[in-house]
Structure formats: structure tokens, C-alpha cells
């Protein structure tokens, strides 16, 4: 291929797929700058390995697969720093339950609901969800994304992130309690 044709293909890719890939990345890593870097890296990897593209899947699917792997690599880096933080109990987490492991007075789940058929409510909910997700630790959010956005089961997630099953359940537990509490507070007081 001549250089000119090369450039043509590259711009075709960027124009056709960059915004979809960015949307995919940003819902999983939250940070805009990082998401853009991951998309850029995806294109570069794809470019280097273009002969591996067999034409069976669509280009979009192929690029998305590469991006997925980049995101998991990124998560894995975050997970290597995790094991130390899980060992001892986390002071910010212990506020949710008392000594008897029942809900602490201040954190008792309050009643709230969101009507999924109301698009305005859904939009508001999403904004709150985003800001609450930002308060999660990177690794908690990683597990959340893989579990609920990518539909992975716990075994696969543990393998991908190199964490033990018990660490996984602690992560999910803390992320859920924290996220629910945050959403409740913002939803009720808005």
C-alpha cells in the first residue's frame, strides 16, 4: 500500500469509529483524557496488526475488542495496588454497619425510587450515578464495569484482574453499599 492510501484508510477509521470507541471507553474509565488515549492506542495497535484482521468480524467489532483489552490492561494496573488496601478494614466502609454488622443508624437504607419510564428522571439519575461512580476506587469501578456493562462473571473478572474470589466479593460489597448510599443522598436531596 502506498503512504497515501495508508493515510486514507487511517482517516476513514478515525472518522467512522473514533466517537463510538470513545463512548465505549468513557463509560468504562470515566476519565476523558485517559479514554481518548486508550482510543488512540487502539488505533495504533490495530494499525500495527492490520494483517491479523481476517475480515470475519466487522472493523468496528475488531477495534472494540482491541479497546476492551486495553481497558482491562488499564484495570489490571489499578488492581495490582489493590491487595494492600483490602487487608485491613477500611474506615470509610465501616460506617455503614455497626459492631453487630447491622446497618448503622446514619446509613440505614431509605426509601427512594426512580421511574425507569421517565426519561428526564433517567437523565438525572445518570448524572448522579456518574458523580457517585467517581467516588469509587478505580478498582471498584473496574469490577463494576466488567460485571454490569460487559456482563462478565466473577470467575472471568478475577482471572482478568488477578484478584482472589474473596477480594472480589469484598469489592462488590463495598462498591454496592457505597454507590447506593451516595445515590440515595443525592437523589433525595436534589
Amino acid at each position: 500500500m502506498s503512504d497515501k492510501k495508508h493515510a486514507h484508510l487511517a482517516s476513514e477509521w478515525v472518522n467512522a469509529y473514533s466517537s463510538q470507541l470513545l463512548g465505549f471507553a468513557i463509560s468504562r474509565v470515566k476519565d476523558e483524557h485517559l479514554a481518548k488515549d486508550l482510543v488512540q492506542e487502539t488505533f495504533v495497535s490495530a494499525w500495527k496488526n492490520i494483517e491479523q484482521y481476517n475480515g470475519e468480524a466487522s472493523v468496528k467489532t475488531w477495534l472494540t475488542t482491541i479497546l476492551k483489552n486495553k481497558i482491562i490492561d488499564h484495570y489490571r494496573k489499578a488492581s495490582t495496588r489493590l491487595t494492600d488496601s483490602l487487608g485491613h478494614s477500611d474506615a470509610t466502609q465501616d460506617i455503614f454497619f455497626d459492631e453487630a454488622d447491622h446497618w448503622s443508624k446514619a446509613e440505614r437504607p431509605q426509601d427512594f425510587s426512580i421511574n425507569p419510564n421517565n426519561s428526564l428522571e433517567k437523565k438525572e439519575f445518570y448524572a448522579i450515578l456518574l458523580s457517585c461512580r467517581k467516588k469509587l476506587k478505580a478498582i471498584q469501578d473496574a469490577v463494576f464495569s466488567l460485571k454490569y456493562l460487559d456482563g462478565m462473571d466473577s470467575e472471568t473478572i478475577c482471572k482478568e484482574l488477578n484478584i482472589s474470589a474473596s477480594n472480589y466479593w469484598v469489592l462488590i460489597h463495598r462498591a454496592k453499599v457505597q454507590l447506593r448510599g451516595c445515590i440515595e443522598k443525592k437523589w433525595v436531596t436534589q
Binding site: S19, S27, V39, Q40, K123, F125, L149
Partner: peptide
Amino acid sequence: LFRTTNDTSTPEFSKEEKIKMIDVI
């Protein structure tokens, strides 16, 4: 809701960013 709600405010690549990206590729 987590599964079904899509972000409506997804940022986009600017024209300059796209050109730069093509260049890097």
C-alpha cells in the same frame, strides 16, 4: 438502570484531535 442508561453527554474528539490521531497512526 446502570445497564440501560446511556451517557448523553459523551465528549467528542475535536477536529484537531482527529487530525493528530490520524497522524500518529
